[in-house]
Simulated assay, not measured.
Amino acid sequence: MLKNLLTIILTGVYLFISMPTTSAMGKISLAHQTLLEEVSEHVSAQLNPNQTDNITVTALPLDSRIRIKQCPEDIVVTMSQSRSFSRQFPVKAECLAEGHEWKAYVQVQVQELIETLVTTTNIAKGEVITDDMIKKTLVDKHRVNNKATDDIARIAGGRAMRNIAQGYQISSSDVCLVCKGDSVAIVATMSNMQIKTSGTAMENGSFGESIRVKNNNSERIVKGVIDDLRQILIKL
């Protein structure tokens, strides 16, 4: 009987001691949450004023041991103006209300997605690339191949210059829009005048590259820039 009574008393004392701590932790959690929301909103307004869907800002949780109070005024958020923003950077947040002053540094993650073309299937070297073999996909900016493109016109209709795996970020350098031996249109421009004739490609080339082509009428070899599928532009 005495043992049971002692157990009940100790349990009551434990609960009594625990209640303020639990309440305090609840207040800390709410203060932390308010802080993270205000930091996220501020940084998002600065980095993504148009609120486009391809940019997301996330304020990372503070260490639970960091104690801050609810701020009765708006939290003042300050971003560094002397550095370019990377994927993650610190932001200073302060409560300046009298009697509630505190300062904390919050780590913020920024993810920017960029639209790029990705292959939907394996493509063999020499295979003509059709529209269903590629698709536009949003990819993290820091994972985008620096040669990748989102311009279907630079890829579709051309031939793969090597074996390409499914899921690859394809670029114009992977495709010959004009391949050696192709019949091409040669477009010569001078001022407002344009002359068009037929030719034969003497080498492979991607969009924007300069290659040699033979004018089928004059048999002359000329150099021109690829500006479309099987089309060469020459400026006179």
Results as ranks from 00 to 15, higher is better:
E219C: 14
E127L: 02
L177N: 13
C71M: 12
E112C: 02
R83P: 03
I17C: 00
K103S: 03
T137G: 02
T21G: 03
L15N: 04
E38L: 13
H42G: 06
A59R: 09
D182K: 01
N48G: 10
L236Q: 11
K69S: 14
S218A: 11
Q107S: 15
I55T: 08
V91Y: 15
Q81A: 12
A93E: 01
P49E: 04
V187C: 09
K125P: 00
I123D: 03
I75M: 05
N4Q: 09
L47M: 15
R65D: 09
H42F: 14
I134E: 06
T149C: 04
R87A: 14
N50P: 03
T121M: 06
A148Y: 04
T121E: 08
Q70Y: 07
F207A: 09
G99D: 02
D182A: 07
Y168P: 01
P61I: 00
T56P: 06
L5W: 07
S218P: 08
I114M: 00
D131C: 08
E94R: 13
T119V: 06
K69A: 02
I152G: 03
K235V: 05
A93S: 11
A160I: 10
A156R: 15
Q88C: 11
D174V: 00
D182H: 01
S82D: 12
D228Q: 10
K69H: 00
V91A: 12
Q169H: 03
D132G: 01
Q107K: 09
K180H: 07
K214T: 08
N217D: 10
L177G: 13
I164D: 02
L5D: 13
Q111E: 11
V187Q: 13
I9R: 04
M161W: 12
N216E: 08
A156F: 03
E98L: 08
V225I: 15
E203G: 14
I134N: 06
Q166G: 06
A148N: 06
K141N: 09
T21Q: 04
L236V: 07
A124L: 12
V184S: 02
Q111C: 07
F16G: 15
R212V: 11
K180T: 10
T149W: 02
S171H: 10
L36V: 03
R212M: 14
N217H: 11
K136I: 10
S82L: 10
